[in-house]
Amino acid sequence: MNLLPGKYRYVPVLAMVFFGVAAFTPILNEPGLQQTFAVAFLFAALALTYDLLLGFTGLLSFGHALYYAAGAYGAAYAMARWDWGIIPAGIFAMVFATLIALFTGATALRVKGIAFAMVTLAFAEAGHVIAVLNMWGLSNGDQTLQLNFDSVPDFFLGVNNTRNLYLLALVTLILIYVAVWWLTQSSMGRVLQALRDNEERVSVLGLKPFNFKLIAFVLAGVMAAFVGVIAVIVTNNANPVMGSTQTTISLLLMVILGGIATRWGAVIGGLIYVVLSQRLTTLDTQGALSGLPEWIGGPMSEPAFILGVIFILVVMFSPGGIAGALYRLRMKFGSSVK
C-alpha cells in the first residue's frame, strides 16, 4: 500500500529539509522547542521501526520498548561504568540488543497473533522490572543511569548546543526512514508483506516464515536500540520508563494515528503525538481549562487522555489513521489519481 503517488513522492524529503533549515531560522530557534522536536524525531524514528513489525510484517508486539531500553541502557552503562566513548558504547549496546532480540524473538515467534503479543509483553515487563528495581546494580533504578559527559563530544553538551542535538535526532530519523524504506522495498520486504497478507501461501512457495519474521523482529529491535543510544545523548540519561509497556503502547498509538504501513504515517503520528503531549500540558498550565468543571478538566489536563480518545475514534471511524483519511479525501476530490 503505497499511499504516496508520484507527484507527492518528494514531500517527505522537502519536510526533512525544512526541519533541517528551520533550526537556523527564528521559526525553531528556541532551545526548549528544539529539545521537544528532537525528542519528537526520536519517537517518530522509533514508531517507524515499530511500523516495520506491525504494518509491514503483521506482527503485533507489545514489547518493542525492550530493545529501545536495551540500546539506551547498554550505551549508558558502558559509558558510565567502563568509561567507554560513545561509539564503542553504542556498538556494544546494539550487539547487546541484537542478542536479546534474537533470544526473545525466537521464543515469542513460536506462537502467533495475540499469544505472540502477550509473550513479547511479558519479556518487556521482565526487562522493565530489572530496570525499575535496579537488579544486580545494573540500572540505578528510578535515579536513572546518567550520561557520562566525558564520553560524548563537547558539541553535544549544554543548552547552547541544543541545536546540534536537534540535528542529531533529525539525522537519526532520516537514517531510520531510509533504512526502513530500503528494507520494505527490498525483496525481503516483499516477503514480509506477503507473510502479513497470507502466511500459508508464502510457506507453500518454499520460504520459511519463521526465519523471515525473526529477521524482521531483530532488525526492528536493532534499529530501536540505535534510537535508544541516540536518546541517551539527547535526554542525558537512560530511565526505566523507556522500557515500560506504556512506551510500547504509545508507539502503537503513533503508528495507528498516523496510518499503518505507510512509513510517513508513522513519522507524522510520532511527531504529532510528542508535540501534542508537550503542548497540551502547556495549555493546561496557561489556564485554558480553568473554566471547565473539575470532573472533566482533571482528565483533560492529562495529554494521554485526549490522545487516547483521539486514538479510539481513529480506530473506530477512520481505519488507516491520518494517512488513510488523506487517501480517502484524495479519492473523493482529487483528480490526481494515477
Binding site: I249, I256, E302, A304, G308, F311, V315
Partner: peptide
C-alpha cells in the same frame, strides 16, 4: 460491539480505553 470480527481493532480499542481510563484516574 461495533468491531465484531475485527480482532486487532478490538484489541486496539481496549488498549486506547485502558490508556484513557488510566489518565482519567490520574486526573481525578
Amino acid at each position: 460491539k461495533y468491531l465484531y470480527d475485527r480482532h486487532i481493532d478490538q484489541a486496539l480499542v481496549t488498549v486506547g480505553l485502558g490508556f484513557v481510563a488510566t489518565s482519567a484516574y490520574l486526573g481525578w
